[in-house]
């Protein structure tokens, strides 16, 4: 279990991370989302004891990383942004070194084989790390984090540089590991976080901008009263007709998608279902309604809105303090 309380890091006047708090339960996968330079890596570096915090506390399985660093670190498997690989060693030699470094008590051969099989690097074990492709290097990096089977895994952008097939494999692996490990995963690839994580923290300018479960996060900002319709017919007339719908807030014609066919963005007051009215208008005027979909926001939109400072208020019953920060951001 990981507990982070009011973690703050200042570099001179610059606030790299400001007052971040969250908890990750056992067997949970937390996604850390944010644009580059948001403070993701800084937070992870504080959690793993690479750098110290200016104030606040980070507890790994109840052990403060600053008070008993060696014990706290022994609970963590860490894959930094750049895997700490010694290029002049073979994969096997390197993992043996990590095994010794972590003072691992597990049966050496069996454990290393298990780790190499999990990360699918068994076939390159005799090769020098400097001759490996980026994808393999990343997997060796993940393998070193798994040595000694630590209960907490902190992975900083684990799928960077991998091809789509490898990304899928690593995601499946992380999901599998998530069942009996506590995992923190950072990424700026949203689909990845959405696919793997139970809970998401969006971090921007060093503060938590949003903190919720993956489902809630997309649900809370999704808007079922927003519809995108593709209608064939005279643009201006259609816009005028749509504006007459009860409870409509605005109608906007988008670009011409096909000859004589435009997409219209409609937004009604929340809680109004305008789909039937829309159909009715199209039928009455004999305008073929070619497509109609709810303009539900993807996590991508949420992320962009939050990080571009467009200000979405995300209700968060769990953590009022975080919600306040979300409003600010």
């Amino acid at each position: 279990m990981i507990e982070v309380r009011n973690l703050t890091k200042h570099y001179g006047d610059k606030h790299a991370v400001n007052d971040i708090s969250f908890t990750v339960e056992d067997g949970e996968i937390l996604g850390f989302l944010g644009p580059n330079g948001a403070g993701k890596s800084t937070t992870m570096n504080m959690l793993t004891g690479y750098i110290s915090s200016t104030s606040g506390q980070a507890l790994i399985n109840g052990v403060d990383i600053l008070e008993d660093p060696i014990k706290a670190k022994s609970f963590i498997g860490y894959l930094p942004e750049l895997p700490p690989l010694y290029l002049d060693m073979t994969v096997k030699g390197y993992l043996n070194y990590i095994f010794d470094l972590k003072k691992c008590k597990l049966p050496r051969k069996a454990h290393l084989k298990e780790v190499m099989d999990l990360t699918k690097i068994t076939d390159v074990q005799e090769r020098l790390i400097k001759n490996l492709s980026k994808g393999y290097k990343q997997r060796v990096g993940l393998a070193q984090a798994l040595v000694n089977n630590p209960p907490v895994l902190i992975l900083d952008e684990p799928t960077v540089g991998l091809d789509p097939k490898q990304i899928l494999e690593i995601r499946t692996l992380i999901k599998k590991l998530g069942r009996n490990h506590t995992v923190i995963l950072s990424s700026h690839i949203l689909s990845e976080i959405q696919a793997v994580c139970d809970r998401i923290i969006i971090i921007n300018h060093g503060v938590v901008a949003a903190h919720d479960t993956t489902d809630n996060l997309s649900k809370n900002v999704s808007t079922d009263h927003r519809i995108i319709a593709r209608i064939e017919g005279p643009k201006d007339e259609i816009v005028r007709a749509l504006r007459d719908i009860d409870g409509i807030k605005y109608v906007k014609a988008d670009m011409e998608r096909e000859p004589g066919v435009y997409e219209y963005e409609l937004e009604a007051v929340p809680g109004t279902d305008i789909r039937r009215d829309l159909f009715e208008i199209a039928r009455r005027h004999d305008w073929p309604l070619l497509a109609c979909r709810s303009a539900e926001m993807t996590l991508e939109d949420v992320f962009l809105k939050i990080t571009m400072g467009e200000g979405i208020v995300i209700p968060n019953a769990e953590d009022q303090a975080d919600a306040k920060k979300g409003e600010k951001a």
Partner: peptide
Amino acid sequence: KTEQGLLTAP
């Protein structure tokens, strides 16, 4: 950047 591995090891 291998010192990160050393400094985060137990």
